[in-house]
Design a protein around this nucleic acid. Structure first.
Ligand SMILES: [Mg+2]
Ligand SMILES: [Mg+2]
Lengths: 225, 225
DNA sequence: GCTGTCATTGCGTGA
DNA sequence: TCACGCAATGACAGC
């Protein structure tokens, strides 16, 4: 992965140079003259273009049309240095001074213009560490193709995983079935002895357990079979 | 313009009630039971749906994976209460605690997942004033039609593909066993077909499944028997 | 989401 | 041919 940093980004150059220490993927960082944007991530044949704006620059350029001209070109660009642009990102870097007091209406209006009108993704990095990690993770995710996939499944994680006595563990597993709680799990284990036995029970056998009626018996049986 | 606030958003209800003082446009605020999201802006026949997450909830739902489940439903929705959804927005509300130190890699990775994979616009509102102004400006811009996207912006928003992942209870139950995650749960079910079959398998049979070796076979077997 | 740790796997080596 | 050890891979659990 190649990372190009615009030569005018002197304030963060040394910070970002250390991206070249990355192992996965190996990163080659160099300073270049970018016709557009501030950072450019190139891998294979596609690129990710990033514009960084310090908060003070962001605020002061809100009124001028310079910001919006710049963002318009940013938005419209489809290639850079011969590489098709796969992704674009605007980074707002720093915190907003409290003195003079921030004008949230202005800032929010600008954010919405950027997000909704220009349709450019926006991330605020409040300090150098955040900026560094933002780019590091972006590079990593790009290399793994994680920014292109469709949403995946995430509901398998356990709420808690007690490395507790085995008996509690069994109850816990049974209780992960909806409509089975701690009490029913215990009753089932008392009656059948093992989860395997519960799994093999017929609906009729399940109904003999205290707390299990027609509905629960059906549900339990249908999950196991 | 009607603003519906979900009844569970008690912490910001009083703050946002004062939106009803707006003149342009006149705003009617009410608390409602929203099946999805936290705030809903309705004007004419279209709506803007907003999900608010406090930073602490953001972090904890990130750790439990609740976040992705919620965002998937958020992303999938195309109408709410009969109104087609024109726009969606995720607001992260608050600042990240320095104690314990924030993990920027985690947060940046989550931001990128939200922006690039779930394709949901994101705004961070660091305090109540920012949140209030964010909504006020959003309402104002909506009423003026200022949030319409410019022609020539990049590509279309990823939307509700019919085949985004659905919950599979059997995998969920298997994955509640420690040392079994979503991958192994799927492999086991592919191989055995049902949980009952997994429960009855011998250690030797279990080891024939990809990803199951000596240790996991022992563990699985001992839980079921 | 990310990171560190550890289990599994497949391969290369020698008996 | 088989048993074993090793390194690379990949999954899980914890944060
Ligand atoms: Mg810049
Ligand atoms: Mg919420």
């Amino acid at each position: 992965m190649h990372v190009l940093i615009d030569y005018r980004e002197i304030t963060v150059q040394s910070l970002l140079m250390s991206l070249s220490g990355m192992k996965t993927p190996p990163v080659h960082v160099e300073v270049a003259h970018l016709p557009l944007g501030d950072f450019f991530l190139v891998s294979k044949d596609t690129g990710v273009l990033i514009e960084r704006k310090s908060t003070s620059d962001f605020i002061s350029s809100l009124r001028s049309s310079r910001l919006w001209d710049q963002l318009l070109r940013f938005m419209k660009a489809s290639t850079l240095l011969g590489h098709p642009l796969k992704q674009k990102l605007l980074i707002v870097h720093g915190t907003f001074d409290r003195e003079p007091p921030v004008s949230w209406p202005q800032i929010m209006g600008a954010y919405m213009e950027i997000l909704f009108v220009y349709d450019i993704p926006l991330i605020v990095c409040e300090d150098d560490e955040a900026l560094y990690q933002c780019l590091r993770i972006l590079i990593k995710r790009e290399a793994q193709g994680k920014n292109e996939v469709l949403p995946g499944s995430h509901w398998f994680r356990k709420h808690c995983s007690p490395s507790l006595p085995e008996m509690d563990l069994r109850r816990y597993v049974l209780a992960s079935i909806p409509s089975i709680g701690d009490v029913l799990a215990e009753n089932l284990l008392d009656h059948f002895g093992t989860i395997a036995a519960v799994a093999h029970a017929t609906e009729k056998q399940l109904r003999r357990v205290e707390g299990v009626g027609k509905k629960k018996a059906e549900k339990i049986h249908s999950i196991f079979h």
